[in-house]
Amino acid sequence: MLEKITDKITEDEAALYDRQIRLWGLDAQRRLRAARVLLIGVGGLGAEVAKNIVLSGIKSLTLLDHQVVTKEAFTSQFLIPRSELGKNRAESSLGRVQLLNPMVEISADPTDVADKEDAFFTDFDVVCATCCEKQQLQRLNEICHKSDILFFAGDVFGFYGAMFSDLNTHEYAVEVKQNSAEKAIDATSAASTAPPAAKKQKTEPAEMKTVKKTTKFTRFSSALNINWREEAYVKRLKRMPKTFFIYRVLLEFRSVHRRDPSVEHVQTDKEELKQISSRLLPQIGVEPTIIQEDFYDYCFAELCCVCAVVGGVLAQEIIKAVSQKDAPHRNFFFYDGVSGDGMVDCLA
């Protein structure tokens, strides 16, 4: 609901957030400062998302991650000091996240998301899941969808990145150019009280007007369950982001191996990725040739630039959803760092 938020922005906040308030307005900033966000997975992508949303001025951020810091983290996870090798990822990131913005409450939780009860998630307004297995994503999505919590998921594999959102039924405000008929009405009503500003109407720039809109989202599983042989989907194949299928293969790898492709086993992992793509893709109704033949050469480690691109888009979507300002991207964004394409598509 677009109900009125009455909390007042302080002078300090107005000074700190000045440049973004000029972009999204005070009302959006007020909604941001009320948002409690859970971030699952504090890898390279998680670090980018955490940085962006903490800088934007949310109320609180909880970092949930049971994994330990490995050397690989130092190439993309800039929130972890080098001295933290072998320690918990969430706890190691806490200090630097807090330094980014002392006005946001930050906490770290080293529990495995799989061990969290469903009730745990309902304390948040936003859940953003990274580094999670497919089954876990579906579980989290289900919990959030039922409790009307804004749900986001994202991952980066080498040059490829993906994000998903389920905002359920989402109401938002958007500024549109006022059409001339409406403007004329406004002008006549104004004319009775205002002094004759003869030349004014003509020279005034196009007036903007805020309108409310609503959009509906579907669950993550409906994208996973698409049968791409069905006629309606076959037609869409040509213009859709093929990175979706690379993402499917990598999620499958993660489910099977309980880890991501690793530079430590480059050869065997590449072989396995080929196997998975030739098995999984026909299962969901597409030829393995739909994805770039050598995709497995480009999907190792979280590449920091790709984290920044996907983390930037993902964080902006969180900001949009929380502030209920502007049309959200529905419901996937894919970035392919090899071609440079960043695409939005609705897969359901």
Binding site: R19, R22, L23, S56, C305, V306, A308, Q316
Partner: peptide, 19 residues
């Protein structure tokens, strides 16, 4: 003549520069 600036856009463009 302030052009609004936000963390997300800057992060994305910085990354694209490096790419």
């Amino acid at each position: 003549n302030i052009i609004p600036a936000i963390a997300t856009t800057n992060a994305i463009i910085a990354a694209l520069i490096v790419m």
